[in-house]
């Protein structure tokens, strides 16, 4: 396991926002796990000078690779002391169970556990005794280490990132939350403060839009897209045949998933929405949409009901805990 310095830590605006939202809507303190990746980047500090004269920068880049950590998602618990005990010792079994269930959910996600976070109200913005122990033992566990992506040499890092969220002591301040990101260095036993770059905020990130490639867990739709494309160009039997052949390429599993969504309304039929026959089909399509909406509505109701029951149960638990503590 290499103890390499990170150049910076990035997080996307929505991820940070939803983390803050989880923290601020929770009744008490929270903690959770951070997922993401660490990538090696080739430093782009090109200069007009002769490379032999700029020795400092060249030695720097050869000494330690430039690594950037990106937090892409997180998992927030409803309380603290979840995957560790009161002394800060990791509960490796429960942590591994959490990680495996997360991996099952989206198995093709390349994200690994890169650290954890803690959110506590009205407290100083520095790691506590327990947080130090947890971070240190998380960083020293070889079984959670992961590979640095995009790197010419093979490096491994451990989950060494710690993100701390607090609220200011005085309520009347303009800002409502404070946060600070650290990289824990095992070799020096020290929390190195790192700047947390919020991706997509500020002019520095304009370049990102150019290099943006969508990465979503939606089923791959490449075949349908091609079918649609060709059929909209020329409408004849040949293109139909082509699109059918394209359809066959879809794996059975994907097809089933799609059929469940479309309720037998094949994608190929969408092409008939063009031209003179369109009027006949719009009604059919609208009916399909209505059905889908009704389904969604039903689903929302089920979710709402179960959320209400979860809330009820949580309130009940809280009451019981308060009763034990003599707070009734």
């Amino acid at each position: 396991m290499d103890d390499l310095p990170l150049q910076k830590i990035q997080i996307s605006g929505p991820t940070l926002a939803s983390m803050i939202q989880r923290f601020s809507s929770s009744p008490g303190d929270v903690d959770g796990l951070l997922f993401g990746r660490v990538a090696h980047i080739t430093p782009s500090n090109f200069s007009d000078d002769d490379p032999t004269t700029t020795t400092s920068s060249s030695t720097l880049s050869s000494d330690s690779p430039t690594l950037i950590a990106t937090i892409t998602s997180f998992f927030c618990f409803n309380s603290t002391t979840t995957f560790y005990d009161s002394t800060g010792q990791l509960n490796v079994v429960s942590l591994r169970r959490l990680l495996s269930s997360d991996r099952d959910r989206d198995s093709n996600s390349p994200n690994s556990l890169i650290g954890w976070f803690s959110g506590r109200r009205k407290t100083p913005l520095r790691p506590s005794m327990r947080e130090s122990s947890v971070t240190s033992s998380l960083s020293s566990k070889i079984q959670f280490s992961f590979q640095v992506e995009n790197s010419p040499k093979s490096y491994t890092l451990s989950p060494c990132i710690f993100l701390l969220l607090t609220t200011p002591f005085q309520d009347q301040l303009i800002h409502t939350h404070d946060f600070r990101a650290y990289q824990f260095r095992l070799s020096t036993d020290y929390f190195e403060p790192k700047t947390l770059y919020v991706v997509n905020i500020g002019p520095a990130f304009r370049g990102h839009y150019g290099a943006f490639s969508p990465n979503s867990p939606f089923p791959a739709l490449s075949c349908e897209l091609r079918g649609l494309h060709s059929s909209s160009m020329v409408e004849d039997s040949k293109s139909d045949g082509e699109s059918l052949r394209g359809m066959r390429k879809i794996s059975k599993e994907d097809q089933e998933e799609l059929n469940a969504c479309a309720e037998g309304f094949e994608v190929g039929r969408l092409s008939r929405l063009m031209g003179s026959e369109a009027a006949n089909y719009t009604a059919e399509l609208e009916e399909l949409y209505d059905k889908m909406l009704a389904k969604l509505d039903g689903l929302a109701r089920v979710v709402e009901k179960s959320s209400a029951r979860v809330l009820e149960q949580e309130n009940h638990n809280l009451k019981l805990r308060h009763k034990i503590a003599g707070l009734e």
């Binding site: 008490g28 303190d29 603290t80 009161s86 100083p124 506590s128 947080e131 805990r321 503590a325 707070l327």
Partner: peptide, 18 residues
């Protein structure tokens, strides 16, 4: 030193910030 209890979990051990 800051002693951090958690009113949500009154039986849990406190944490300390030095």
């Amino acid at each position: 030193w800051d002693v951090i209890y958690n009113a949500q979990y009154p039986l849990a051990a406190p944490d300390i910030i030095f």
